[in-house]
């Protein structure tokens, strides 16, 4: 077998693998329970499967799912930009900036998201008009009733973005802190400004640490959009709810909505993996640019 080390032949490990009978027993038991549960749902007379099939691809449901995607994407983009700003402010030497960032984070993490959503929905009651002008004069540049400027969609988007930014700020801050101090020193010694160092040297490296928890946050956000039902944004859950309040098929429409949430979250995994590879270059992440360079080198030869 091993010609290189003939004298060591009898030291080679030829052992009977350790058996794990209980794993098989547990797996079979689990499969049975799961099958029984699924069967109980499928055979349940109380659930009308035709209604599920009828609404699974209903245009209103699909529009709702589309709006959920739009809300998730838009609020995550706004939140990430705001979070990066807050994280940099919190790490700033400027006390005022630190206080603002800390206050922001404490405020938006310290109150329930549902409360914040309702608050933005009621903004028109607190401020009936939104007016921009020159203070202490009669000059107005912009004056509109709040309800026309801030639709329920806008209110929902603001609520989700501002809340998420507070959580994401801490993630971004942890990412920035994970980058070795020597990187900033090297950048400084080359004459790079603070902003340039942050954009080109620190943040690209911080992304490696930021991305996995931000993937979590995105999944969480996708589901949190359902809270916008309270301000009547016609996203997936609200739409399913509206339909079921008319045809009284509550459970069936929950199944429909749940199906689409599950599908969307599964699809979210792909861009996450792509981004993790993209920012893993140089760090020996499987599939990242580093392994690709090695391959290119071999091909060049």
């Amino acid at each position: 077998m091993s010609n290189q080390t003939p004298s060591n032949d009898h030291y080679e490990i030829v052992a009977k693998p350790l058996r794990h009978p209980w794993r098989i027993v547990a797996a079979v038991a689990l499969a049975l329970v799961l099958a029984a549960f699924i069967w109980s749902l499928v055979s349940a007379k109380t659930i009308n499967h035709d209604v599920i099939a009828q609404y699974l691809f209903d245009p209103a449901i699909l529009r709702g799912a589309g709006l959920t995607v739009v809300l998730t994407a838009a609020s995550m983009i706004i939140a990430t930009a705001l979070a990066t700003l807050m994280a940099v402010m919190k790490l700033s030497e400027n006390v005022l900036l630190r206080v603002i960032a800390t206050g922001y984070i404490e405020f938006f993490r310290g109150t329930p998201l549902l409360l914040q959503i309702v608050f933005w929905g009621y903004l028109g009651i607190i401020y009936p008009h939104i007016t921009f002008g020159i203070p202490f004069t009669n000059v107005t540049i912009f004056d509109q009733p709040t309800s026309t400027v801030i639709s329920s969609f806008t209110a929902g988007l603001i609520a989700l973005s501002l809340n998420e930014a507070a959580y994401a700020a801490e993630i971004v801050r942890a990412g920035i802190l994970s980058v070795d101090k020597g990187q900033t020193e090297a950048a400084k010694s080359l004459g790079m400004s603070g902003g340039y160092t942050m954009r080109k040297i620190v943040l690209p490296q911080a992304m490696r640490v930021i991305l996995p928890p931000m993937g979590n946050e995105t999944i969480s956000m996708l589901k949190s959009t359902s809270l916008l039902q309270v301000v009547a944004v016609a996203e997936l859950y609200t739409t399913a709810n509206q339909i079921s309040s008319q045809n009284l098929a509550q459970i069936e429409l929950l199944v429909v909505a749940g199906f689409w949430y599950l599908v969307m979250n599964t699809i979210l995994g792909f861009p996450q993996r792509y981004l993790e590879r993209r920012f893993g270059r140089g760090f020996d992440v499987p599939g990242s640019a580093m392994t690709r360079t090695a391959k290119a080198d071999r091909n060049a030869k």
């Binding site: 070795d180 020597g182 090297a186 950048a187 080359l190 004459g191 490296q205 140089g282 760090f283």
Partner: peptide, 17 residues
């Protein structure tokens, strides 16, 4: 600092480049 080059004990190369 542009006129002053520096080489560090622990290299401090930018690992993502």
């Amino acid at each position: 600092r542009r006129g002053i080059g520096m080489v560090f004990q622990r290299f401090n190369l930018f690992p993502h480049l």
